[in-house]
Design a protein around this nucleic acid. Structure first.
Lengths: 131, 131
DNA sequence: TAGTGTCAACGAAACTTTTCGTAGATATGA
DNA sequence: TCATATCTACGAAAAGTTTCGTTGACACTA
């Protein structure tokens, strides 16, 4: 398994944009970033961040056109797993279960979501049983 | 409600130590911090961090003895709620439910924990129903 | 070809966070 | 009392992150 570098705050924002929009040029990223924060983000700022992310292996770059297109290297799920594990370790003593419980308690979920969750738990219990 | 400042990585490490040990002197914090990372953390480094955290209102300080004792100002639950909400916003599009599901999928929970979870979900469904 | 606009690359400034050296106060023990 | 140890406070260096000005390459068009 390869080690994927932990993204900074800004880098995470950019990943979110790329996940949502698919491959983007710098100008689009700068625009979205500006909208997301209250504040205008300069073109070169966004470019620099993308370049750093490319160097770190967080994004891929298509250079066939003069205006390069960037895309996230990893799907959201990979990063989410990573962050969840880290948060669990950092403040839930490594327990993803306690993390899940806190998440569920903190905001009201819809009945539909609760049903989904129950189903997931059923599956997990099945898997446990088989072993 | 008062606004609690977001702790940095180091600050979170220190909070974890204080939550676990209760009120501590600087030397203990420096020691635990050193053990947790692979690397020795100097006494003054730990002191400085604690002083900053005190200024930010993250920790409280008992100055009755010459060697001050620091303790976390907020219980772990408060910080956990905070972090969970932030993580949900930052990479799960605000959905704490999806965060919970990712957490459950990423590591195997014990049967006991699964039972607890089901119970929690039952309660949430009850609450929903009442309204 | 000259003028205009867009682009990537680079480097440095601005800002944040972490680390530690040093100074001065207070206690401890020979 | 004098030497030694422990502590807080302060400030600044070091490291990490974000921001942007400037440059030179390239493309379009008059």
């Amino acid at each position: 398994m390869k080690k994927l570098p932990k993204p900074t705050e800004s880098e995470l924002s950019i990943l979110r944009i790329l996940w949502e929009h698919g491959p983007c040029g710098v100008r689009v990223v700068a625009g979205e970033l500006s909208r997301e924060r209250q504040k205008e983000v300069g073109y070169t700022t966004a470019l620099k961040l993308l370049q750093l992310m490319h160097a770190k292996g967080l994004v891929e770059r298509d250079e066939t056109e003069r205006s390069h297109r960037y895309s996230a290297k990893h799907p959201p799920e990979t990063m989410q797993r990573h962050v969840v594990a880290e948060v669990a370790d950092r403040i839930f003593g490594g327990s993803t279960t306690r993390l899940a419980m806190q998440a569920l308690s903190s905001r009201q979920a819809s009945p539909d979501e609760l049903t989904q969750l129950k189903q997931l738990i059923e599956e997990l219990e099945q898997k446990k049983g088989k072993k």
